[in-house]
C-alpha cells in the first residue's frame, strides 16, 4: 500500500515549486502522523462544541414548539419552502465541492483544489444572497420580526412573535457561521494559490471542510424544522 493514487497532479506553472516546502512539522509532535491525527481530533472536538452551540437553538425550537404548536405551524406556513429548498441544494452542493477539494489536495490536483474552493465560496455567497434578498429583506419589510419589533398583522396565534424570534435567532446564528466559513475559504484560496497544500499537507483544507459540513448538517435540520414541518 505504498503507492499513492495520484491522478492529474495539475501543478501547472508552479510545478517547479513543490507544495511541501512550506510545510514544517511542529516539533513537539513525534511524527507527522501524530500531528495530523491531533489536528483532526482537535477539529472534531471543535465541531462538538459547534453542535452543542446549536443545541441551544434546537432546544429553543423543541420547547416552544411543544408549548405553542399553533404559532409554529402558522409561522412556518408564512415561509416559502421553495427558497429553503433552493438554499438546501446550494449548501449540499457546496458540501460536495468542499469534499472534492479535500480529495484534490490529497491527490495533489492543485487546479481542482483551487476550483473547488472557489465554487464553495461562491455557493456560500449564493446562500447568503438568497437568504438576505429573498427571505430576510421581505420579512423585515413586512414586520415579521422578533418580539418587540413584530408588526405583522396577519397572525393566527398571539405567540407568533416568538416564532419569529426563533426563526431569526436560528437562521441568524447559522448565517453567521456561513459568513465565517466564507472567510476561511478566502484564506484557503490564497494559500492554495501559493501551493501550500498537497498530499502530505492538507490539514487546513480538511479542517475547514469539516467545519463547512457541520454548517451544512445544521441546515439539513433547520430546513425541515423551519419550512416543512406543519
Amino acid at each position: 500500500m505504498t503507492s499513492f493514487p495520484v491522478e492529474n497532479s495539475g501543478l501547472g506553472a508552479a510545478a517547479d515549486r513543490p507544495y511541501h516546502e512550506t510545510y514544517r512539522q511542529a516539533e513537539h509532535f513525534r511524527t507527522q502522523a501524530d500531528e495530523f491525527d491531533a489536528v483532526k481530533l482537535g477539529v472534531w472536538l471543535f465541531l462538538a462544541t459547534e453542535i452543542l452551540l446549536f443545541s441551544g437553538l434546537f432546544v429553543f425550537y423543541g420547547i416552544m414548539r411543544m408549548l405553542h404548536p399553533e404559532a409554529f405551524i402558522h409561522g412556518s406556513s408564512l415561509l416559502d419552502w421553495r427558497w429553503g429548498l433552493l438554499n438546501t441544494l446550494v449548501l449540499l452542493y457546496s458540501s460536495y465541492t468542499v469534499a472534492s477539494a479535500v480529495r484534490c489536495a490529497q491527490v495533489g490536483d492543485q487546479k481542482g483544489l483551487q476550483r473547488n474552493i472557489l465554487i464553495t465560496f461562491v455557493m456560500g455567497l449564493l446562500f447568503l444572497v438568497i437568504k438576505f434578498v429573498f427571505e430576510y429583506a421581505p420579512k423585515y419589510a413586512e414586520g415579521k420580526l422578533p418580539g418587540f419589533w413584530y408588526s405583522y398583522p396577519n397572525w393566527e396565534s398571539p405567540y407568533e412573535p416568538l416564532w419569529w424570534g426563533m426563526y431569526w435567532g436560528a437562521t441568524g446564528v447559522h448565517a453567521s457561521h456561513v459568513i465565517i466559513g466564507m472567510g476561511l475559504f478566502v484564506w484557503l484560496y490564497i494559500r492554495a494559490r501559493k501551493l501550500h497544500f498537497g498530499p502530505k499537507h492538507y490539514n487546513a483544507v480538511e479542517g475547514v471542510g469539516l467545519y463547512w459540513h457541520i454548517v451544512d448538517v445544521v441546515w439539513i435540520f433547520l430546513f425541515p424544522m423551519l419550512y416543512l414541518i406543519h
Binding site: 472536538l45 462544541t49 422578533p146
Partner: peptide
C-alpha cells in the same frame, strides 16, 4: 468542551432577549 458551548448559546440568547426581546 461539552458544556461550555451551551452557556455560550445561553448567554447569546440572553443578550438577544435583552436587546431584541425575542421572547424565549
Amino acid at each position: 468542551v461539552l458544556a461550555t458551548p451551551v452557556i455560550g448559546i445561553t448567554l447569546l440568547l440572553l443578550i438577544f432577549e435583552r436587546l431584541f426581546h425575542i421572547g424565549i
